[in-house]
Design a protein around this nucleic acid. Sequence first.
DNA 1: CAGTGGTCTAGACCACCGC
DNA 2: CGGTGGTCTAGACCACTGG
Lengths: 236, 236
Amino acid sequence: MLKYQQIAEEIEKYIEENELQQGEKLPVLDTLMSQFDASKSTVTKSLDLLEKKGVVFQVRGSGIFVRRHKRKGYISLLSNQGFKKDLEESHLTSDVIELKVRKPTAEAARNLNLELADDVYYVKRVRYINGQTLCLEESFFNKSIVTYLNKEIVSESIFNYIREGLGLKIGFSDMYLHVGMLTAMEADYLGMEEGAPKLDVETVFHLTNGQPFDFSIVTYNYEQSQFFLQANSQLL
Amino acid sequence: MLKYQQIAEEIEKYIEENELQQGEKLPVLDTLMSQFDASKSTVTKSLDLLEKKGVVFQVRGSGIFVRRHKRKGYISLLSNQGFKKDLEESHLTSDVIELKVRKPTAEAARNLNLELADDVYYVKRVRYINGQTLCLEESFFNKSIVTYLNKEIVSESIFNYIREGLGLKIGFSDMYLHVGMLTAMEADYLGMEEGAPKLDVETVFHLTNGQPFDFSIVTYNYEQSQFFLQANSQLL
DNA sequence: CAGTGGTCTAGACCACCGC
DNA sequence: CGGTGGTCTAGACCACTGG
């Protein structure tokens, strides 16, 4: 593990263990440098990481402060694939409805840069949170990259398997959100009424080398759809 | 303007002007270093910025590549307050429905760390995109920070005024998303049916020093609600 | 194994905040 | 004006990719 990741982790752990609140001040850079026996750039890099994650914010001429958000029970839109993080106390399960090799839909082919004749793994799941339906998920995996899947893998964390089992490196993703009304089929899976509000999240996942390997469409039950997002304005 | 920002801007401009597509390779680091007469760290910092903005992705041992998303007409959830960026071709206007100094709601007070007796500027606007209703927006500004507002300011970009007119530095924001159904009042403003799907986005905006100065609730017309989001998985 | 990006250091100097 | 974070450099060395 890299030094700056290590430092970032320790600082984050320190914040959690001491239950520091929004606005509380962390030790100054000099202290952190000697404490972790690292150069200024390295410590700064750790802090930039934490800032990107929404854990701290830095104020020039003043100090480094803890950043917290107040609300519980929200799903972080960015702690990508595998909510896990913000819903630690919640119980998440999945029902696998379908798992097979097939040809992609036109939309899936377009998003994965595939031909209609190429093979994809198709996975359809319903996800539950504390026993209530959370979402319906359909995923298309480029079979030439994700070469094997089975029911066991698919009922657990597919992404962990892709990372550890297949040794692939997941890079970045593009997400598209739409609000609409549930179709009869979706309503059925989610145990809701047809025409109820829904949020569709379509995501294209890429490897670190830029290859798209997964296109997924997730339809959220609006009653469980509380999402959270942290932004930094210094992008311009 | 800082050197690394300058470099980032020029690289971005270069990509736009030459209409580089997803996956196209940029010059190698050495070239960029000499081209911009900058050290490796500085160029790297520029590229990290662009990576955060979703403009490029870097692959160790291989190169620096252009990142693009395919879909047009989506509102970027992160290019914070002031869509402007992704909707450049669209025509955006506002109707100011209400502008006054008042006491905050309990919710607004909580999110702005204010007392119920403190003063806030309250702004209510309907926003249009190409003549169609896009959203209904209610904002509460901490009056001890945003000391003055008038109809003219409020019908243009409030955030530009805060930055340039008041000289305040906007830092980060926390966003909370909910899906639901339009109330009669909301439907009326948006020209929709009561009970139609909606997306509510509540945002708390902070200055760079961490002080919250604006709490806003934006209710989107679901027919116009197409959002876009780019994520980087290397956060862990 | 050559090419290319990533990490880390030490140190100089700059820019901002708040007393 | 002292304290603190931010920028920038030069250079050593590491780690990954792809032919």
